[in-house]
Amino acid sequence: MEDALQLLSKYGDDAKVMAGGQSLIPLLKLRIASFPYVVNISGLKGLNQIVEKGDYLEIGSLTTISELEENDLVKEKYQALHEAAGLIADPLVRNMGTIGGNVSHGDPSNDIPAVIIALKAKLELAGLRGNRNVDADSFVTDSFTTVLEKGEILKRILIPIPGTNSGGCYIKHKKSAGDFSVAAVAVHLRLEDDERVKSAGIGLTSVAPKPLRAVRGESYLEGKKLTDSTVREAAKIVVSESNPSTDFYGSLEFKKKVLGRITEEAIHLSFERAMVR
């Protein structure tokens, strides 16, 4: 890690970090971006682990999307993350692409950011001046722009271990297998003993210039008993927080319609899962 940070500091703007290369290499091939030095961090030790430690699930940034998808702990307790991993690109890309690259790329259509936003995760960043933590919902600041400072490396993703009576899911609406989404939503709910919502997390993919936390949708749900009409109202609020644009994946109106439908579905499903626990 120290060596990688030194190299990045030495070459400054001329250097770019590469993990799995599944986003970076296509950009380099199309000459959309070009860097005199590419620093391959995929060999750094100890950054591909998935372990629960203290209050957090720690995921090393070099964990591949396939490893995430196949991990039993994630499958059992972090369903939204497991579901998102299985819906990213195709198995060949997932074998190389890493969770750290998926988040650091800052692409509003990448699937992991919305999930870690809904799960209220923290990101541990390493730099020559030491480590710092940032909240998942403030990490991506704009399209393809993150809070990573020059020469910083995303080291780990820290997800609070979900308490009892909690459940979540990731629903992705896409046009064809292996594609990015028209819209996608991650929901995580924790319930009180009387079934009212204790806390809610909602993250959105592809419906704004950056991955979005639906703050107003979250606070509307908190303290409420879920009925068909409260869920419908919550989805309406979430849609009003989104800011999609018309493009190849569909018109603005279509994306909002899709988002409303999958948000309702995701809240219902998360509630059912939280009840089973």
């Binding site: 290369g21 599944q22 290499i25 296509p26 391959n40 995929s42 198995p91 060949l92 890309v93």
Partner: peptide, 11 residues
């Protein structure tokens, strides 16, 4: 299984 067109030889 991986895509060899999306990987550098040095990797």
């Amino acid at each position: 299984a991986v895509k060899s067109c999306t990987m550098l030889a040095v990797q």
